Simulated assay, not measured.
Amino acid sequence: MNILILGNAEDAHAVHLHNALTQAGATVAYFDTRLFPTQLKISWQPDTQVGSLTLSGGNKLHFQDINSVFWRQISGVYIPTLKDANQQKVAFHDSMSLLRSLMQACPAYWVNSWQAYQFHKEKPLQLSKAKQLGVTIPATLISNNSEQIIEFAQYHKRLIFKPVYGGAHTQFVTESHLEPQRLALALNLAPVTIQEYIPGTNIRSYVVGESVYSAEIRSNSLDFREDAQAELMPIELPASVRQQCLAIAKAFMLEWTAIDWRLKPTGEYVFLEANPSPMFLHFEQKTGFPITQRLVSLLMVD
């Protein structure tokens, strides 16, 4: 059984899963996109649907011989610096086009797929899809219109803000953030996501296939990712919320994911986001949940 890990040996999660899959009897290799096109070789014939991937060590795999691919991280491609900027641009786009084609044409079982990865990047759509499923989400405004943001702020006692795309921690909105000149300057550069602050505690639910593992994250920080001392307490989700986890994963095209919730003092679960490539080692170590074992089982389905 041939399994690829999209990532490299510099990532602890990729290495951990590589070792676990190898111990389970799979033939595992890293698919490090930074090595394409200088070391990795990709070929594909659209008329016959025949394709192959030659790894940096010379190991050649036909697309149909790759059983599954674990999406840990994609690092783009590496084009050596060229004197001609236009040639550099053409080389980059040509390489990315073939790489993207491989990720959609290779019939392997992807955990997760290119489509799921692309959907995750559109976080406003992710929230909208969750709402359509009947899942509770925070009152949210994504905008670069200062008037609408100030009006939205008047209807909510406490607000948080974060990037639309992600990549930075959540912060509280203060009066200084809403100062018209400062706000207009910031919004001329990029839109922002503004949400009502949801009082309560953080819950993270890992969905692996049909399995759901959840824990309460006890932290005094607004964004628990900033808190190295955060405590993890395993919990059993209400049956309805567990079903929502599975519905979210399916609707978002995710074979596995980590879903972040906010649990209100009233007992209501509020959806925040679903990550297509979450870190899981710390969570697994602290809770004892068999996430690695379930991922190995998922990837080794023939």
Rank of each mutant, 00 (worst) to 15 (best):
Q23D: 14
F283G: 12
V270W: 05
Q195W: 00
D47A: 09
L272V: 09
K121V: 03
A184S: 10
T54D: 04
A190D: 15
H177W: 10
C106N: 12
L159M: 10
P191W: 01
G76Q: 11
P191M: 00
S297Q: 15
Q285W: 01
P80H: 09
S97W: 02
L6P: 01
V207Y: 02
V173I: 09
A274Q: 03
I137K: 01
T193Q: 14
L298P: 00
T136N: 11
Q88I: 01
A184N: 13
T38I: 12
T193S: 09
Q115H: 04
V69A: 08
V241Y: 06
Y206W: 02
M300Y: 05
E147W: 02
A24G: 07
A190H: 08
V208D: 02
P265E: 05
T22Y: 07
A190R: 02
S240Y: 06
P80M: 12
T170S: 09
H93E: 14
F31V: 08
Q73M: 05
D84P: 02
P290Q: 06
G57W: 09
T22S: 14
N86S: 11
N220L: 15
L237Y: 07
L298G: 00
P80I: 11
D94F: 03
L159H: 07
T136W: 04
H120S: 15
I79N: 07
A228S: 14
Q39H: 14
L99Q: 08
L189I: 10
L125A: 14
G200W: 00
I194R: 03
V241R: 03
Y117L: 15
Q132L: 14
I198C: 03
N112S: 08
N145W: 00
Q73P: 00
Q49V: 06
A116Y: 06
L298D: 00
E10G: 11
V77I: 13
G209R: 02
V241K: 08
A24L: 05
Q23L: 12
G51P: 01
S221C: 13
Q126W: 05
L178S: 06
G288E: 10
M279A: 15
L17D: 01
E236A: 07
Y30L: 10
R242C: 11
E231P: 01
K162I: 01
S146K: 05
H18V: 00
L40H: 08
L35K: 11
P37G: 13
T48D: 01
S214R: 04
D302P: 12
L4M: 09
V173S: 08
Y109I: 10
D260G: 04
F224K: 09
G167H: 07
D11K: 10
W114K: 12
L246I: 08
K131I: 00
L6M: 11
V173F: 07
Q23K: 10
N202K: 05
A230K: 15
L272R: 03
P37L: 10
P199V: 07
P46E: 02
A26T: 09
S143Q: 07
A239Q: 15
Y30N: 11
L299H: 05
K286M: 12
A258V: 04
K286V: 08
D47R: 03
M253V: 12
E216P: 01
A20P: 06
S52Q: 12
V208P: 00
P163H: 04
G76M: 10
L183Y: 07
Q73G: 07
S277T: 14
D84R: 09
L159W: 04
Q171L: 14
A153L: 01
E236P: 01
T81V: 10
D32R: 08
E175A: 12
M103W: 14
Y165C: 09
Y165N: 13
R34L: 13
Q73V: 00
L125N: 13
